[in-house]
Simulated scan of single mutants.
Amino acid sequence: MAEHNQIGKETEQMAKEWLTSKGYEFLDENYRHGHAEIDLVFRFRGLLVFVEVKFRSGTGFGYAEEFVDATKRKLLVKAADHYIHEKDWHKDIRFDIVGVYKDRNGNVNFRHFEDAFY
């Protein structure tokens, strides 16, 4: 497995554990539909929450939320539509972004952007 893929898996696992510790109920991960993939899916306060996880080893090149462009958002919505239909979900949904940041000392911090787009 390429190093960036391994980092991605580890980052998603950290975000999954972090959100679970905040009361989110984990449902699914790496849900694929065509070329689209949803990193994590949770249930939280009656909502179905689709989460895009982004890792940054600093903020010099920008924050995580800046790397979810219009094309990526469109793919996420497409995959979410398929997931909703497949699971027969009839309640509200939300799209979140979780930025996972590692500082020079190796400390990990999270930034959670709820209802980041639609």
Rank of each mutant, 00 (worst) to 15 (best):
A2I: 07
E3C: 06
E3I: 12
N5H: 12
E10Y: 06
E10K: 10
T11M: 01
E12I: 01
Q13V: 09
Q13N: 15
Q13K: 12
M14V: 03
M14Y: 14
A15Y: 02
L19N: 13
L19I: 10
T20M: 15
T20G: 14
T20C: 13
S21F: 07
S21G: 07
K22N: 12
K22P: 08
K22I: 02
G23Y: 05
G23P: 04
Y24M: 07
F26G: 00
F26K: 01
L27V: 15
D28K: 11
D28I: 04
E29S: 15
E29C: 09
R32I: 10
H35L: 10
I38Y: 01
I38E: 02
D39E: 08
D39V: 01
R45V: 06
R45T: 07
G46R: 08
G46K: 10
V49C: 08
F50A: 13
V51D: 02
V53S: 08
F55W: 15
F55E: 02
S57N: 14
S57V: 04
G58R: 07
E66I: 02
E66N: 14
F67D: 08
D69C: 05
A70M: 13
A70S: 15
T71F: 08
T71Y: 07
K72Q: 15
R73W: 00
L76F: 04
K78P: 01
K78G: 08
A79I: 04
A79P: 05
A80S: 12
H82E: 15
Y83H: 06
Y83Q: 04
I84H: 03
I84Y: 08
I84V: 15
H85T: 11
K87M: 12
D88L: 09
D88K: 14
W89M: 09
W89F: 12
H90V: 12
K91Q: 15
K91A: 13
K91E: 14
I93V: 15
F95C: 03
F95A: 02
D96E: 09
I97G: 00
I97H: 00
G99H: 05
G99V: 03
G99T: 04
V100I: 09
Y101K: 06
Y101L: 13
Y101N: 06
N105W: 11
N105D: 09
N107S: 06
N107P: 03
V108D: 11
N109M: 08
N109A: 07
H112A: 01
F113D: 02
